[in-house]
């Protein structure tokens, strides 16, 4: 009985403290961040401008988006009829994974594979964009003076 009362009191005290503190320094939890961005991309009235702004902003954060955010973003691309933007975002995520791309990117593709198959989204590999298509070859890959 006593413990229940104490639990309630402590709960109210800690909540109040939290509220007071968050007045000066609101700290968003990771869960709230993910939910916020997932709901941002899931909003039915999202337009192409906001979709691109969201992608650009996400690309600037010091984190890697959860697959559920990526799925929401790809569904928004489908809703707004932008297949090239979906492919572009997957490329951008591969770049964002940095030196760990060979671990993170396949994991991401594996996580979002159902969505890719459902919406028929082409990954960069499907379009041959994982290798430079129009860029010059590296000199170390050239076989001769006319091989470029």
């Amino acid at each position: 009985m006593l413990s229940i009362i104490r639990g309630q009191v402590m709960k109210s005290v800690s909540l109040r403290t939290l509220a007071v503190r968050s007045y000066s320094s609101a700290k968003e939890s990771d869960q709230d961040f993910d939910n916020r961005w997932e709901s941002y991309f899931k909003r039915p009235t999202l337009d192409g401008w906001e979709l691109r702004k969201g992608i650009n902003d996400m690309q600037g954060f010091d984190n890697f988006p959860e697959p559920k955010i990526v799925v929401a973003c790809l569904e928004a691309c489908k809703r707004l009829n932008e297949p090239s933007l979906a492919t572009r975002y997957l490329e951008a995520l591969k770049w964002k994974a940095g030196k760990d791309a060979n671990v993170i990117y396949p994991w991401l593709i594996q996580e979002i594979r159902p969505t890719l198959d459902k919406l028929k989204i082409a990954t960069p590999e499907d379009l041959g964009f994982d290798k430079p298509e129009l860029a010059l070859k590296s000199v170390f890959e050239m076989k001769g003076p006319n091989d470029y």
Partner: peptide, 11 residues
């Protein structure tokens, strides 16, 4: 894609 974007990220 090439209508929307000039070069891919790998390029």
């Amino acid at each position: 894609y090439r209508a929307d974007f000039r070069s891919t990220l790998s390029e």
